[in-house]
């Protein structure tokens, strides 16, 4: 069966005062119906821009090549009308900071029903009934009253639940969650993650979960993509990625991560910083920071090559990597 979302060789270039800046290079990824896929990497690696591309929300002047098919439809050739039909009803999005992503001056009810009425052609009553069901589904207490309330009357975690309800309102099949727990307290995070997993199990929703937190990646997703400097450097089932990484960058990320249950271990920060867009070295973008780099690494960006049945890595050296336990 064809995947619900099939991104192939996607490249995005943004305009800048100093000329066009390439941000995404040759990104390919898939999300199946009902699958929870993780996209991980440091800030600025192109995760969020990928999400924006998939919703047609790139800034004016952005140049996009490659292909992104959702349920058989080529997204990149959609006109404004076409995008309106896909957004919300096909692909929906949850933003990082619910306080910023909810309109402060419109009631929850208004924000929850306005696109339902456009996409699902519901009248006010039907939309209201569905809104109550949705709030109930995301475990907002007293949904009838919540509909009349404004976002600032909820706590951060509750706001994100409201934002998730809004994203689900027009029955999308794919939810892109862009770091939805980053702005929340740790105790609240777990609740949101559990909610997303439950929604996937109950409704068959596919979720693309963007995060910089490998712990969240392993807790929630079944398959993951590791992004570095606008490229996918490694992909595979999350369990394998995090226990036996094939790419030095994945291993370095794991080494730089604090271990929650362990004391006395050393944190190993990755030396250097990711290259700024447009300033990546000619070869492998990670090569200047990589302990295993060889002269051939500087020649050309290594393509993502299959390793075994379900994994791929973009590394020509393929060193034997030890992961700190």
């Amino acid at each position: 069966m064809a995947p619900l979302l099939d991104v192939d060789s996607l490249a995005v270039t943004l305009p800048s005062p100093r000329g066009p800046l390439p941000i995404l290079h040759d990104v390919s990824l898939t999300v199946d119906e009902g699958e929870l896929v993780g996209i991980a990497g440091e800030s600025g690696c192109g995760k969020s821009l990928t999400a924006q591309t998939l919703l047609g929300l790139l800034p004016p002047g952005a140049a996009v090549t490659g292909s992104a098919r959702y349920a058989g439809t080529e997204l990149l050739s959609l006109d404004a009308r076409g995008w309106q039909r896909v957004r919300g009803a096909g692909i929906a999005m949850v933003f990082q900071d619910p306080s910023a992503a909810l309109h402060p001056m419109l009631t929850v009810g208004r924000q929850l029903t306005e696109h339902m009425r456009v996409h699902l052609r519901m009248d006010r009553r039907a939309a209201g009934r569905r809104a109550v069901e949705l709030l109930d589904q995301v475990r907002i207490p007293d949904p009838e009253r919540a509909l009349r309330a404004y976002p600032h009357q909820f706590s951060g975690g509750m706001r994100q639940r409201v934002a998730i309800a809004i994203a689900l309102a027009a029955r999308p099949r794919l939810l892109i969650a862009d770091e939805p727990t980053t702005a929340l307290d740790v105790t609240v995070q777990a609740g949101i993650l559990a909610l997303l997993e439950r929604l996937r199990a109950e409704t068959g929703l596919a979720v693309a979960f963007i995060t910089h937190d490998l712990g969240v990646l392993s807790a929630l997703t079944t398959r993951g993509y590791i992004f570095y400097a606008g490229r996918v450097v490694e992909t595979g089932p999350t369990g394998g990625l995090l226990t036996a990484p094939n790419h030095p960058y994945t291993a370095a990320l794991l080494g730089a991560r604090p271990h929650g249950t362990q004391t006395g271990g050393t944190l190993r920060p990755i030396p250097g910083a990711p290259p700024a867009p447009g300033e990546a070295p000619p070869g492998c973008p990670f090569q200047p920071r990589c302990g295993y780099a060889e002269p051939s690494c500087g020649e050309a960006p290594p393509p993502l090559t299959p390793v075994g049945a379900d994994r791929s890595v973009a590394c020509v050296v393929r060193p034997h990597l030890e992961v700190a336990a």
Binding site: L55, L57, A80, W83, Q84, R85, V86, R87, G88, A89, A92, M93, F95, D97, A100, A101, L102, H103, P104, M105, L106, E114, H115, V118, H119, A163, I166, A167, A169, A170
Partner: peptide, 26 residues
């Protein structure tokens, strides 16, 4: 520039609705 305007577009609302209801109000 606000996220809630991007969020309004991401919901699939027509531009005129985003401008009249979300942008103007704020």
């Amino acid at each position: 520039q606000q996220d809630y305007i991007r969020a309004a577009y991401a919901k699939g609302l027509p531009t005129r609705v985003v401008l009249r209801r979300h942008l103007l109000r704020a």
